[in-house]
Design a protein around this nucleic acid. Structure first.
Lengths: 140, 140
DNA sequence: CAGTATCCCTCATGATACTG
DNA sequence: CAGTATCATGAGGGATACTG
């Protein structure tokens, strides 16, 4: 038992790989924009700044927690800016920064692929499911 | 008690919005490619087909379960093809389909943004953290 | 209005063990 | 070699309640 167990070795590999991934810029970005709320918020702000309450109305399904939390990380990353107007009831506006706006073309390219190829994906999925009915999804 | 509670109304909004999102191609795509293993596998296959065991070696940290599961969904979506060679020990190769390859430019555009802007994001993050030290992360 | 703080619970992932 | 099946866990997200 002097040698490491397979489990230990795998754990080490995992850690090493995780470290590698943590250093990869593309992965970091993907981790961000893949967030459900991030993409929705960026989209909502694409046409101009919005107030907190407007955002929560536009993005109908979001909880206060997630909206605030997501806006915070976006602000922290310099993608949106937050401006407070200390009127009687406070007013807070969120706007895309230049950095945030530079992200829009990327979103567009994703959207473009989706709109031109997603049908093929759906078709492939149906074919696959019709051939192997019980494989992935029983019957539903 | 005739009127719906705020909770109920929010739940309805959530459902309606979820349904709306479920129909959005761009979101579906994002849900796919944002998957940690999806992007890694697509990348590993970008340069050519690979065997199952090769993939598990290249993508060092992946568990058998996730590798298999991810490959299945990719196959189901028509993004990779799976070919079995019934030799003595079975041999299975995975390759990007044309559809899968068409995804590469999108990945590239994501990677490009990441490589040219991620530094700014990191810088913004540090600034933010130095101004509000105890806000998001205590001290670490 | 624009949050913060708390509890709670689900679901995705990983470890483990077994197979054609 | 290339999987499948089962179980355990923990972290993300929602509901709820409170505040400047």
């Amino acid at each position: 038992m002097a040698t490491k167990t397979a489990t230990q070795r795998r754990a080490e590999q995992r850690n090493a790989y995780d470290a590698y991934l943590a250093a990869c810029p593309a992965r970091k970005l993907l981790d961000r924009i893949s967030d459900k709320w991030v993409s929705l918020i960026v989209n909502a702000l694409a046409s101009g700044s919005q107030r907190y309450s407007d955002l929560s109305r536009i993005i109908a399904g979001v909880s206060q927690k997630m909206l605030t939390q997501t806006l915070r990380t976006l602000e922290r990353d310099g993608l949106v800016s937050r401006s407070v107007t200390p009127s009687v009831p406070v007013r807070v506006d969120y706007t895309l920064t230049d950095l945030g706006e530079s992200l829009l073309p990327v979103m567009v390219s994703i959207k473009a692929w989706a709109e031109s190829h997603m049908e093929q994906v759906l078709a492939a999925r149906e074919t696959y499911d019709s051939i192997q009915p019980a494989a992935t999804e029983p019957s539903r």
